[in-house]
Design a protein around this nucleic acid. Structure first.
Lengths: 172, 172
DNA sequence: CCAAATTGTTTTAAGCCTAAAATGTTTCCC
DNA sequence: GGGAAACATTTTAGGCTTAAAACAATTTGG
């Protein structure tokens, strides 16, 4: 916080500098709107995935990560990328291996590590779903101009950095 | 779609106008970034609520809805506002009634309807949590200027409208 | 008036998700 | 080499979430 703040300050009865309770209503509203947008899109995508392909969103997301990694990923990698807990990934992978979409093997160099890959079936099904998925997203964001999209990308990058910094601050 | 599109078109072998497979990679990236921001903030808030108040995020969210409605809300209202399923609300309410934070009664004019309210305890606890919650949000968004916030609000409003329109299109 | 449609809620079955503890493996470093 | 720390994963317990079906009450239209 800067030494001199724009905010008015006041002195309490014991002459100790105390901040006025700042108004963060705008940030709160922003957060709620962000959440609304995400929930809306997510719900829509979830429903369409289920109806068209009888697949859940988390499974689709996991397969999307693996599609970008032809050599496979460790469970930890997936967990970090998807920003979900380790145990969650364990369960998801279990079901996707069961259904024949994933291949799981223990790393030869480090027996702690499980490496997972899409199977041929898994990759084929994912590609089919992803193509359609992309059109859904395009449709959901259809009213945004290319400029809107660029501007949102920029501002959300800033938002992400801000939130990461705040989270790191707390963890330290 | 406008009669004359900026996109190049081509004719297929049967002379029927066919769109080139359009590139929606930008929208896709935007969606992923939006999701990342939300997941980041949500995870941070979830963790802090648990650590500081031993309360879950869904319970906090439900209480937030009720705090804005002194006369109570029906379960359907809550479900719509929170954009979650009916059954989900039933379970949440059950636990919050159990813990003494909520009061639930059947409407006198329509015996299908359940009206829920915050109890005195529920309201007091919520207010205490909400005050701190607001500072967390402010901190998470601290690097955004007031102008950034305004601009994001505007663009997300547009995003929300676009997504709602798309969802309505599909439902019809 | 009454059957049909609608509305509000709960139940069910299955899956998702988290935090924390437990387990097994590797690395570090003395 | 060997114990401690770090790491990767799984397990556990509890709660959240959804879609769909079931149930109950009200409204609607003949």
């Amino acid at each position: 916080m800067p030494a001199v703040s724009d905010c008015t300050e006041m002195l309490d009865s014991e002459t100790k500098a105390v901040e006025t309770p700042e108004d963060h209503a705008e940030e709160l509203r922003l957060w709620l709107r962000l959440l609304t947008c995400t929930t809306l899109v997510e719900g829509e995508v979830r429903g369409r995935l289920r109806q068209r392909f009888d697949v859940t969103l988390p499974r689709f997301d996991l397969m999307a990560q693996l599609d970008k990694a032809p050599d496979g990923m460790t469970l930890s990698d997936v967990s970090k990328r998807m920003m979900v807990s380790n145990g969650n990934v364990t369960g998801l992978v279990e079901r996707l291996v069961e259904s024949g979409h994933l291949d799981r093997r223990t790393s030869e160099t480090d027996r702690r590590v499980q490496v997972i890959r899409l199977t041929k079936l898994g990759r084929a099904e994912f590609r089919r779903m992803a193509a359609e998925h992309e059109t859904w997203i395009a449709d959901l964001f259809a009213d945004l101009t290319p400029k809107d999209v660029r501007e949102l990308m920029r501002l959300l990058a800033k938002t992400k950095a801000s939130a990461q910094k705040s989270a790191a601050r707390r963890r330290s």
